[in-house]
């Protein structure tokens, strides 16, 4: 899968100063499957917008965004649903967990669609990220950092060509962030998938193919 932006800019950002942005100022931006991208910027520069446009959540932009040469504006609800099941996975900044379901139920809600991971695999991933003991607790009562890791595991429980991770380490300490990044990149490699990760900072020890200033 190839994601290509042709002079894409979110409508609210047209008036803003986007000088120096490697995304919104560029003639064309290319994201290739199998590569790791880091989109870095301060708040309000449109990091979330970038991922939301690719994921079909935002339609208020100018320019053309393409997935494998097809204009994503032309995709039907059914096509988006298929993409989100089998091609694109998203770690939301707002997490989008169901507070009254347990952590495990939240993960199962995603995994149940494709049965991508076994229960054992989910348990092992949770152990690695240090939340194994919280799987049967309601997601709503976990700390934000714990919830972030639940959301990351959930995002890994599906086949994908691109993983879109929106500031997914913001509430995780540095040591745990590195462990989590390892888990993410392992899964991406296994699937031969691309990664687009946004971050404010603190990604110094993580390896990317390309760093973009948003």
């Amino acid at each position: 899968m190839i994601v290509r932006f042709e002079k894409v800019i979110p409508l609210p950002m047209i008036e803003q100063d986007t000088s120096g942005s490697g995304i919104w100022e560029a003639e064309s931006v290319l994201f290739e499957q199998g590569k790791r991208y880091l989109a870095e910027a301060a708040s309000g520069r449109g990091k979330t917008s970038l991922l939301s446009i690719i994921f079909g959540l935002r339609k208020d932009y100018r320019g053309v965004a393409r997935i494998d040469d097809a204009d994503i504006r032309s995709f039907s609800g059914k096509q988006w649903s298929e993409l989100r099941k089998y091609q694109l996975s998203f770690v939301f900044q707002g997490l989008e967990l169901f507070g009254d379901l347990t952590a495990y139920e939240n993960i199962r809600l995603k995994n149940g669609i494709t049965r991508h991971k076994t229960t054992e695999a989910i348990r092992q991933m949770s152990e690695r990220l240090g939340i194994g003991t919280f799987l049967n607790k309601k997601a709503g009562i976990l700390s934000f950092g714990q919830q972030q890791r639940v959301a990351i595991i959930r995002a890994l429980c599906q086949p994908f060509s691109f993983l879109l991770a929106d500031e997914c380490f913001s509430h995780i300490d540095h040591a745990n962030s590195l462990k989590t990044f390892d888990l993410i990149t392992e899964e991406c490699s296994r699937q031969g998938a691309g990664l687009i990760l946004t971050s404010l900072d603190g990604t110094g020890n993580m390896k990317f193919d390309q760093r973009l200033m948003v």
Binding site: G77, K78, S81, K85, L109, I113
Partner: peptide, 15 residues
């Protein structure tokens, strides 16, 4: 809110 969230997870409205 839940339905929007499910849609983001890839659930189709028919599901």
């Amino acid at each position: 809110e839940k339905i929007r969230r499910l849609s983001k997870l890839g659930y189709h409205y028919l599901e």
